[in-house]
């Protein structure tokens, strides 16, 4: 597209006319100058075959045919190259866009992964902290229960010990009193019994 006027600012028809004019000049020169001139003879002596008229004529024909060549060959080729270039540019742009998008997505995924990892780490840390707190709470509770059980057991042991001691004391007291009662019974003769009765009668205190 950018090569629309690369052949110069002259219109094609002018180029064709100009080409034929130059070709006519070349034919004229070929007829007039030929190979008999001094300068041409020197050049030919130098080993170079030179025919100026044909050369100029060939240049004129080329100039006259150039628009045709340009129209049927250069322009389609330029157009195809431009399209190809546009296609490549479009493809490159698309690839670049995809790469940019991929980079963006990758970045986003990396951010999301990082965020997920951070969140997971935070949750793990929170769970660990909660577990530690729960562990400490359970240990403290277990310790309290253990202390309470030990205290209760000690109190029960102490109570049972005291109870056993009291029962022993009471039993010993009963035994001693039974023995004393038997001794008194054996030693209590009739006279003493009569005295007990007489004392009871004389000291009698009644309840009303």
């Amino acid at each position: 597209m950018a090569n629309e006027n690369t052949s110069g600012g002259l219109p094609p028809i002018v180029k064709v006319v100009l080409g034929f004019a130059i070709a006519a000049v070349g034919v004229f020169l070929n007829e007039k100058i030929g190979a008999g001139t001094e300068h041409v003879g020197r050049i030919e002596l130098a080993g170079v075959a030179l025919e100026p008229g044909k050369t100029v004529g060939a240049l004129g024909v080329f100039l006259a045919l150039f628009p045709v060549i340009e129209s049927f060959f250069v322009k389609p080729l330029t157009t195809a190259l431009g399209e190809r270039n546009d296609s490549l540019e479009s493809t490159f742009a698309e690839v670049e866009s995809l790469r940019s998008e991929m980079t963006s997505m990758k970045s986003e995924y990396e951010k999301r992964i990082a965020a997920t990892e951070a969140e997971a780490r935070e949750k793990i840390n929170a769970q660990i902290k909660e577990a530690q707190v729960l562990r400490q709470s359970l240990m403290a509770e277990a310790a309290d229960k253990s202390d309470a059980l030990i205290k209760q057991a000690q109190e029960e042991i102490s109570g049972e010990k005291s109870k056993a001691l009291r029962e022993i004391q009471i039993h010993v007291t009963d035994l001693a009193l039974q023995a004393a009662e038997k001794v008194v019974g054996k030693n209590l003769d009739n006279d003493l019994n009569r005295k007990l009765i007489a004392d009871f009668v004389s000291d009698l205190e009644v309840k009303k």
């Binding site: 008194v184 019994n193 007990l196 009765i197 004392d199 009871f200």
Partner: peptide
């Protein structure tokens, strides 16, 4: 064993 016990109404005098 020895002595005596007197009871009347709701009272007991135990000698």
């Amino acid at each position: 064993v020895g002595g005596l016990k007197v009871s009347y109404e709701d009272f007991v005098i135990d000698g």
